[in-house]
Nucleic acid binder design. Sequence first.
DNA 1: CGTCTATTTGAATGTACTCAAAAGCGGTGG
DNA 2: CCACCGCTTTTGAGTACATTCAAATAGACG
Lengths: 194, 194
Amino acid sequence: MIMEKLIKNIASHVQLTDKEEKLLLSKVNVKKIKKGEYLLRSGEICRYQNFVLSGCIKTFYLERNGDQHVVSFDVENYWTGDLFSFINQTPAHFNVSCIEDSELIQISHDNIEILYKEIPKLERLFRILIQNAYVSSQMRVIDNIRLTAQEKYLKFVAKYPTLENRVPQYMVASYIGITAEFLSKIKRKILTNS
Amino acid sequence: MIMEKLIKNIASHVQLTDKEEKLLLSKVNVKKIKKGEYLLRSGEICRYQNFVLSGCIKTFYLERNGDQHVVSFDVENYWTGDLFSFINQTPAHFNVSCIEDSELIQISHDNIEILYKEIPKLERLFRILIQNAYVSSQMRVIDNIRLTAQEKYLKFVAKYPTLENRVPQYMVASYIGITAEFLSKIKRKILTNS
DNA sequence: CGTCTATTTGAATGTACTCAAAAGCGGTGG
DNA sequence: CCACCGCTTTTGAGTACATTCAAATAGACG
């Protein structure tokens, strides 16, 4: 059944009773979204937290001049959305758009508050999820500072081996914080030197 | 009383009953630490989560060649420690040391698990704290990519106006990810051009 | 097949780094 | 109170890594 992945993902962090599981499932809904469509634009309020069943979602910061900086790529089994906007129901800083046809499970802000009350364990679940995200983000800060562009690229490929072939290169470049042209040169250099 | 700051900090996020407050206070202890001393070295397991009452603590990543990359400066009212190591009781990636004589409130890993059980609201508290930390970390990733060194410096000063005069410049440089020499040049440029 | 977008390439440029040396600054002891 | 020591900050010259811009090439999709 379609909720299987969500249940399994949750079960790896906290144990829910059957009753709790049912309650949870009664408070979520499935959404399909096509490549190119937006889940959220900066300035809007993020109404849903999304669990990715399939496809790929990118979260990015948009500069006034149109430049994009990719914050994250979220694929199967990842959560996505502008967390700060979602929690505080304030205007989002980030944009969230769909780079492959995708299928999501959504939890609305209202429902998540209800769920937190009814199932305190979910508070723990989200603490753990955010904790993990926080720790990688901290590491990303440090890596951005200490690694060269080539090292960042190699680390990206090592960490997300499948993404490399799913995501256009200029987006990968944006994620690691270099220009698309320079990434192209890096790849050539890696190929010729090895 | 010495715990006042902690209680106040917590109260701004969740409401504790008197009984819960007492329980919490019975599970923490105060620690004084002198400038230059370490709270944690990478490879060790982080036993405590620390709330800073006074002083200043830095968390940093140490390279094999001895280079340091400052992850955070934590002053009064901040929490500090290697979160991932603390949560999972695994070897730490970061070092935590004291850059001013400081006073901390510590919660041990064992005690925090007890506290989570007894006072589920604390789960919420830490979720919120980590959430906030995560959101700033995400923004820091983006800012590191999109801003020039000078912009990063100005943003640092705007965000932490008091730190500028408490922390040696080479550590500020490390935090924003540039060399101490270059930060010196930036400051001169700012002074002469304005 | 043609159009639109993504990638590659090269030349010129710029931002930030490295290295080495000098200057500044705070503390300590004679 | 001065002199010296260690550490931090400043300065400059040379260099390197990555960007910008423009043009050519390759790929994807209707």
